[in-house]
Amino acid sequence: MADVLFVLILLGIAVVGAAVAVRYRRDMRAGRERIERSGSRVVRTDYGSIAYARAGEGYPVLVVHGNAGGFDQGLLLADWTIGPGFQVIAPSRFGYPGSPMPPDPSVAMQADAYASLLDALAIEQAAVVGYSAGSASAIQFAVRHPERLSALVLVEPVAPGKGPVMPKPIFTVFFKSDFIYWATITFFQPIIGGPWAGVPPGKRLTPKDKADVRMLLSSLLPVSARVDGSAFDIYVSTPGLLNATESDYPFGRIGTPALVVSAVDDPLALHENARALVEKIPNARLQAVPGGGHMLLGHHEEVRQGIMEFLRSTVASPPQPR
């Protein structure tokens, strides 16, 4: 009897293991196909290859994705927060899908790479929308290439002040293995997914909120294609901006109209930092969102409306080709 029970247990483990393996391969295949379907292209610049995707028509808006992203995340975030009537140009930053990490990378170099991308696309001037960790290079672009910038939008930006930094063991365990990351968000998403996505503690999620969190976390697959860029964000770019001095980021030199969008309950990019950032940029204003955490859950429509009104009021005439 004991031998039969043991065999049944082994059989059950084998069946479960096979089912997990099938689901993992399916989800990984779906992630790779999603990236391939996004219609990305690659341009060669002095800073290496840059992958980008375009969507929509109208005034060009350079969309700068956040941590663990890529051009595909840029398209997703733009879909949530930028309405029709604009041409979205979503590059992968250094170390993200299609854009290899160059030797001795820096945030300033990334900003210069954006200018090279606009050159390759024959775009003289564009608006820039930077999300989360992407705010660092968006701000540097505004400082280093003011003539190429017509408007600056920072959504849930990293900004000087207090802020959480991911411990290296967590990054090493969860974000360097496709399988471990996939298993975590697949089987433990209610426990882990909320904090990783910047959901405020105790927030009750609607079915739509849960679907958005699941979509964002799943969009990171395969994480192995994003690990170099994510490590740079976590250990170089974000701490550099959190602890920035005026010489590092001369905010006072930004003359372009700017909009800073921040949820009051964001646990990752603190609202108090966003308020202080608005005071540092001469021509900036704040759109304070009453809730929704880092993902602005439940507030995408009002954020989209605010960004559209800001862009339409600041970029009325289309740019001339170079």
Rank of each mutant, 00 (worst) to 15 (best):
A211T: 13
P160G: 12
P239S: 05
L217G: 03
S219E: 11
D212H: 14
E156H: 15
R226V: 05
L154I: 11
G240W: 02
S237C: 00
V158W: 04
I192P: 01
P222R: 12
G202F: 02
S177W: 03
R226H: 11
L152C: 08
T184K: 02
D212Y: 10
F174Y: 13
P160L: 10
R226F: 07
V236D: 04
P222T: 09
K162I: 15
P207K: 15
G240P: 00
R214Y: 08
T206E: 09
W196G: 01
E156S: 15
F174V: 04
N243G: 13
A244Y: 02
I192M: 14
V158M: 01
L216K: 09
G163N: 13
F232R: 00
L154D: 05
S230N: 09
A183C: 10
E156F: 11
P164Q: 14
G229Y: 01
L241I: 03
S230Y: 01
P239W: 02
V173F: 14
L216T: 11
L205K: 06
L241N: 00
P167H: 07
P207L: 15
P239V: 02
A225R: 11
G163F: 10
G193L: 10
P239Q: 06
M166C: 09
I191C: 02
A197C: 12
T206L: 15
A197H: 02
G229E: 02
Q189E: 12
F232W: 05
S224G: 15
L154M: 07
V173Q: 06
V165S: 15
K168L: 13
P169E: 07
G202V: 05
K162M: 15
L149I: 14
T238R: 10
